[in-house]
Amino acid sequence: MQALWDSIQAIQDEFFNFKLMFDNFDAVIAGFWFTLQLSIVAGALSLIWGLILAVLRQTPGRAGGLLRIPAIAYINALRGVPLLLVILIIFTSLGQLTSEGAVPEFIGIPTWGGRPDVFWYGVIAITLTYGAYMAEVYRAGIEAVPGGQMEAARSLGMSHMQAMRYVIVPQAVRKVIPPLLNDFIALMKDTALVSVIGLVEVVQAARDVQRESLNSSALMLAAILFLLVTIPLAMLLDRLIKRQQAQVSRGVTI
C-alpha cells in the first residue's frame, strides 16, 4: 500500500511539481513570450505570402506561366521539405553568406526590433514553409468561387488582377478562414522547432529547467501554456465552421 502511495507521489512530483513550476515560472513565461511573438509575426507574414503565392498560381494564359510555374514549383518544394530542415538551411546559409560578404549584414544577421537573429531566421523559415501550406488553402478557396464570378467581373471590363482583387479573393478568403486558423494552430506548435538553432522559446526554456532539475514539471507547464492558447483557438474554429455550415444550409453564399 505504501509502495503504491510512493509511486503516485513520485508520478505527481515528476509531472506536477508545483514548487518547481512556480520557481521557474518567469523563465518559462519568457520563453512563451518568444513563442507568441514568433507565432504572430510568422503567422501574419505566412498569411500574406501564402495569398501572394496563391494569386500568382492562378495567373492565366501562356505569358502567365512565367509567374504560375515558379509559384507551383515553389509551393510543391516547400510543402515537401521538413520545416526543421528549412530552419537549419536558413540559419546556416544566411550566417555563412554574411560572413563571406555576399549578403548585407542587416539581412544576413537580422536583429530587427531588438529580437535576436535566430528569432528572425525562425520567422523566415516558418513563413517560407507555411506560406506554401496557406497558398494551397487559399487556392482551394479561390477554386471554390463559382466560375461565373470571374466571367461577370471580366464582362464588366475588369482585368484578371482587378477581378481577383475585388471579386474573387474577398470571397475566397471568407471561405477559408477556418482552415487558415487550423494552419495557424499548427504553425504555433511548430515554432518549437526553432529551438534547434538556439532560440529559447517556451520548449527550450522548459527543457533547460528539466535538464537541471531532472524533473518534467517545467515541460508540463509549457504544455499547459500552449493549451491555454490552442484550446480557445480550436473552440473558435469549431464555432466558425458551425456558422458556415448553418449559412450553407440556409443557402447563403459564403
Binding site: P146, E151, R174, I254
Partner: peptide
C-alpha cells in the same frame, strides 16, 4: 448571365 453572377459580398 443565366445564373445572375451577382457578387455575393
Amino acid at each position: 448571365f443565366q445564373q445572375f453572377n451577382l457578387f455575393p459580398h
